[in-house]
Design a protein around this nucleic acid. Structure first.
Lengths: 335, 335
DNA sequence: TTGAAAGCGCTAACAC
DNA sequence: GTGTTAGCGCTTTCAA
């Protein structure tokens, strides 16, 4: 069933059918109705390729993420996909893993598919080395690029970020104020967002001259899902004689491993060890005691990202960078 | 930059360019090289729409799932996307939620986008009422439909399932053999797969005449992520005087809530309460003690789904239904 | 308000 | 081995 069939059956030209299809006002009510009738009767839907060929757009947004099964990224993808769909856009998903080469390839691939824009989900797309971020700028020369939780100052690139620095700074201050002085920082990512978080912790500690030892900064290298390995890392620190009564984690998973660590060593939470996680994910309720965690308002970020994107596609002037602030949600792992 | 530009610069016809683009053998090595040179120099990539218009395929597979942020579904999507991409296909993701109407719309939408096939991820797409499954058959009239963890016997529909029935039957038998007789079954889904699991538990219990009370079957109605609510449900049962020394959950999240429940009530695991979860997800290591869980081999299922799909698209005869068996992974919540 | 016709960029059948 | 050309199904001037 093509536009020709419809035009024939309705006794009009294909131009007229196209007009009613695209909601043009230059069609008499009578003709419109006649055409619409035929369209409905035959359940006709226009061929997306042909339409794309003419319009050079398919109303499709590319979504790039490192790993769609990551708890946090999955949530982000979910929100973005939902909100795009409710605005008439489809989503082309593409998982890149964590190597630069794959990212460049995937981004090109998406752009060759003629997506109208691509959303990079997760701060891990931004590299420290400016040179490594050129792939984003190149892509931005073709379509607007949206960054969720990553910031890059370049033409046609729009960043929506949570203020990880401040969130972490405030959380650290609050833990200190609650009477804990030796706070370990446990992290597993040196991404843009990862560095901002670390800086927040650092500032709070240094302001009070509490960052006595570099050992208080603990980087975990292994898999992002391997809680036993994270726990083991902490136990090793304990065996090495490192002592701490607070632990702030850059991620709920890491925080969870701290709860396990405390459980296995008989350390009482929060009296002997206070713990704060990050993301306020579903994991916060999966443990005993429940985890105090920083909520970075992912849904709000996504909502805003989509409005910005729609604005950009609409040709409106939109803010290049938008910052939201997070919020500490207190539960059982802190005093 | 179009195929015309390239043909001109290379001094050949567009047909020849098209041939080298599509790897046709009827091109002399010399010409091929000449054309390839120009293509590379100008970084030309063919327009996907025009190509789609001609071939009527875009090498894109639609992925439908209820909620891409669900731990289990997210993992499935991840595997499928990966494996498709490594075979030259892209993925159009579409989350439907759990209402039939949205599903019908999403499926149509995907098919209108001219995807080559659509994969339904999760057993919740199959309804008990045959009538409600017609939307799948309709779609299958246009493109092959792949079912991950759901089964439907219809033309052009291919099912890849884990044998949930047997897995659950065996797990239940093993718990009984370990000396637990009063085993609660805790579930939250009446999907195809959900019913198979329940049937497995049922059979094991009934064979030994242990299903004394309907109360042993507990359905949880709330959100799939709300562990506190699941825990509260169990505590209410306890207050109501229901007693059980084993709990088998249809999902790791539910099992986790049982661990919390036991923790809050001071019930020792596994001596006073044995627990088995389902999916062997990352959650199994997030708790103390670690959760015994049934691994339903998601990655294997996905791998097989993709090979089957590629076979179907290739015009080969492929099995309509493939069944894999699961495996009980023992950890600290069982004796 | 409507129709005719010229593309959009590519593939593939056919001719040479 | 290579070129010519007719579509693919739609959008969008331009005329009427």
């Amino acid at each position: 069933m093509t536009i020709y069939d419809i035009s024939e059956k309705a006794g009009v030209s294909i131009a007229t059918v196209s007009r009613v299809l695209n909601g043009s006002s230059n069609v008499s009510e009578k003709t419109r109705k006649k055409v619409l009738d035929v369209i409905n009767r035959y359940e006709y839907t226009p061929n997306a390729f042909a339409r794309g060929l003419g319009l050079n757009t398919m109303k499709t947004i590319g979504i790039l993420c490192a790993d769609s099964s990551d708890l946090y990224l999955a949530k982000g993808i979910y929100y973005i996909e939902q909100k795009l769909r409710s605005n008439g856009y489809d989503s082309l998903l593409c998982c890149t893993g964590y190597t630069l080469e794959n990212r460049i390839n995937s981004l090109n691939l998406l752009i060759n598919k003629k997506v109208d824009s691509v959303v990079l989900v997760g701060s891990n797309f931004i590299y420290e080395n400016e040179e490594n971020n050129r792939y984003i700028c190149n892509a931005a020369a073709q379509v607007p690029i949206m960054l969720l939780n990553g910031a890059l100052d370049a033409p046609n690139v729009y960043s929506i970020v949570s203020d990880d620095f401040t969130s972490m700074y405030e959380a650290t201050c609050q833990m200190i104020d609650s009477g804990v002085n030796d706070i370990l920082y446990y992290y597993n990512s040196a991404s843009y967002s990862g560095k901002r978080k670390l800086a927040g912790y650092r500032l709070a500690m240094e302001e009070r001259d509490l960052l006595k030892s570099p050992e208080l900064l603990q980087f975990y290298r292994g898999s992002h899902e391997d809680i036993p390995a994270m726990t083991e890392h902490l136990k090793q620190l304990h065996r090495d004689g490192l002592s701490f009564h607070g632990l702030i984690a850059a991620d709920d998973t890491l925080a969870l491993s701290a709860i396990k660590y405390a459980g296995e060593l008989g350390i009482a939470i929060p009296s002997e060890l206070s713990i704060i996680g990050y993301n306020n994910s579903m994991l916060v309720n999966s443990c005993v005691p429940e985890l105090t965690s920083i909520d970075n308002k992912l849904e709000t970020l996504c909502q805003h990202l989509i409005s910005t994107l729609l604005g950009v596609l609409d040709g409106r002037e939109m803010p290049k960078k938008t910052i939201f602030s997070g919020e500490l949600v207190r539960r059982g792992t802190t005093r």
